[in-house]
Amino acid sequence: MRATHDVSALRQMLAGLEAERLPGASSAFSLGAAGPDGVLANTLARGALHEIYAAEGADMPAASGFALALALRAAQDEARPQNRPIVWVRQDFLDSEAGRLDAHGLRGFGLDPSRLILVRARDPEQALRAAGDAARCSAIEAVLLEPWGEPKMLDLTATRRLALRAGVSGVTFFLLRMAEKPSASVAVTRWLVRPILSTPLAADAPGAPAFAVTLLRHRGGLHGHAWNLEWDHESCSFRDIAPLSRAVVPVPAGKPARQDAAAQEATGDVRPFRRTG
């Protein structure tokens, strides 16, 4: 009993020490949603290495979208120079496996395509080297590195090198990874992302991109939290999804239509962010 108490006290102390080394509010960015921001409170650092994990290949679009959203959030600050380029390093193989990036899609997500420098790498080695070069250039806002699968060379040393470079230049570095089990790295935060059902728009159309994110690791000791977030490309910020506000279970086909309508009405009233049009 006493031993566990000591260990938890020690953990807290360590977390406090770690938090002291975290950057100040000036070089931290927020997600824009009240839920995670309340917990994280200015501990998401610019000029650091962040990891975004997809548990499986089919979750890659969601992970890429979430990483891009984080990069856009990191770029959003009145005091910083605006419209600095974002470098996205992708491996060739992804084009056939997950699709190539589309300019209209990028704009629809909130990024002006002319700000993007797309680097297509032949293999993970080339990708890592190009991303490392980009991370050294302080005129770049953010770097997204998207290798295919889980390359061996992306080990502790490689991530430390990336993190050091990002720390010196102030470039925020996002590393997209796809693995069942996260491997060792020196990332400041590690997120696990998967898509969830969006809040449907009128006429049952799919709504804004919605993610279920879990903070697997946090330098300040705030890991373990999970949120459901929705990306709003117009304001370039996340929104919380209230877990109870959505009718995620469709009405079984056999039930009478009246009950269906009633259920719709009941949930419709409390949908907080329903978009018109």
Binding site: L118, A130, A139
Partner: peptide
């Protein structure tokens, strides 16, 4: 800053080839 970005593009293009460092044109 623009100079720096240009230098980065040149460096990557010299190593990986011009057709691997790209930008969107509508």
């Amino acid at each position: 800053e623009e100079e720096e970005v240009g230098a980065l593009i040149d460096r990557l293009a010299a190593r990986m080839g011009r057709d691997r460092v790209l930008r969107f044109m509508m």
